[in-house]
Design a protein around this nucleic acid. Structure first.
Lengths: 244, 244
DNA sequence: GCGCGGAAAATGTCAGACAATTAAATGTAA
DNA sequence: TTACATTTAATTGTCTGACATTTTCCGCGC
């Protein structure tokens, strides 16, 4: 009989879980110092290297930070938005690339979520976000831009759109959806014609957001979703034919 | 001068980053075996414990799995939806609890995203998802249910709603938003009156989804969002007064 | 009062050893 | 020949002990 998956045979995993639970359940607060490695070792009846492996696991999840020197040690870390973004994006990207997620599925999810932001973005957009969107549109119009740079600019544009909703939790949740699409988008070859189309839609979206016209923004996002989908399907088809 | 943040002074962090990048960039594919700990140690010119710390970091992110015994070792792991869910939920929950996110902000984000799912859920809902929603509604109507159980059932109901959209990427993205709200919701005391109201809205949502009436589903979700917001604000106010 | 240097405490790293586990190879008997 | 038991080798898991490095604190001399 296999033991409960909640109690892995790895000592370092067990210890990491115990500490992680303490942090999640609020038994340890931000900036609180954990016992030293030696103390933890004797507390859990294991050796110091084992404790260290557990601490490294927690550090990998940004749950703790460590500080060397006297009165150093491991401290519960305040999870910053920035780090949470990074972790979320990494996980999302890997999830998509390792599970053969269809372009359609990822595209549908991304634009559905983005459309949810549009009305709020229209209400609250700041000059800053508008400026970023306009700047990226301009970049996308430059001839000679590589497909990869075009995609990167596309991501920046859409993140500005999301950030314009002025809800950091929303931005965090959307970051994964938008960024993780990039590898899939990178498979597309953007012709001059398709760039023109996309830039046109981006401009329409920026205009709608500037005019606080939520309905128009949503409509244009829908059009962009449909167009992106068709581009992606073309690209996937070509890849399939080529690999035959 | 501090060194580039991309090259931390921690050897184990550096090594973890090198391997992580190889996986993310596709230089190592799923189920590929990493060199043994001893080989990695000599490759990176560090000791085995240091390599092990690096591997534990990767294991914490579900990037690798390890297997003991002959022909065992560390293997690139296919990131499953289940694990990605778990990581996303953990990160989201901590982000909210550690950054004093306002109830309004989290609530707004959650319901905005859920509304985005509603039309797709209405189109694609399966009998299974409908049954789950109905079952949770029934549970929520039971008298004597604790506030915590009520919240847990609420989460299950909403996850069924999201899953009904039949887009696993969307489900993954939403999992964080829905689950991370639970600790905040748990601060609310649900009176008999408010439970009645919520159950009524849940029923209306389930009905709308069953009838494939996207507009009605969105409208009812909006009403639920507004009501939840008012409940939350009341609860926050009470807490504030109490702590004075 | 102020700077300076050493002591102390903690993490970071290393080396070597042994235990535990597992798959493959080998041997053995029906 | 095949099926089964045994050995063996490779690899991770864990421990012990040591030293290096970093950082703070405290006392000392000026």
């Amino acid at each position: 009989m296999k033991t409960d998956p909640k109690t892995p045979s790895d000592l370092s995993a067990q210890i990491a879980k115990a500490i992680r639970d303490a942090i999640i359940e609020g038994r340890m607060i931000v900036d609180e110092r954990l016992p030293s490695e030696a103390e933890l070792a004797s507390e859990f009846n294991v050796s110091r290297p084992t404790v260290r492996e557990a601490l490294k696991r927690l550090a990998a999840q940004s749950l703790i930070r460590t500080q060397r020197g006297a009165f150093g040690g491991a401290f519960v870390k305040r999870l910053s938005y920035e780090e949470a973004y990074g972790q979320h994006i990494t996980t999302s990207t890997l999830l998509l690339s390792m599970n053969a997620v269809r372009f359609e599925t990822a595209c549908e999810a991304r634009y559905a979520l983005e459309r949810a932001c549009a009305p709020m973005a229209a209400r609250r957009r700041s000059p800053d976000h508008l400026a970023t969107m306009r700047a990226e549109i301009h970049r996308q119009s430059q001839p000679g831009l590589s497909d990869e740079s075009f995609c990167a600019s596309d991501v920046t544009f859409h993140r500005a759109l999301v950030d314009a909703a002025a809800n950091p939790v929303l931005s965090y949740q959307l970051a994964g959806a938008v960024e993780a699409m990039q590898p899939l988008m990178n498979m597309i070859t953007f012709t001059e014609r398709s760039r023109e189309e996309i830039v046109g839609l981006h401009t329409a979206i920026a205009d709608a957001i500037e005019n606080k016209d939520a309905a128009a923004a949503v409509a244009k996002l829908e059009a962009l979703a449909a167009y992106t989908l068709s581009l992606g399907q073309d690209a996937m088809e070509k890849r399939a034919r080529k690999s035959e």
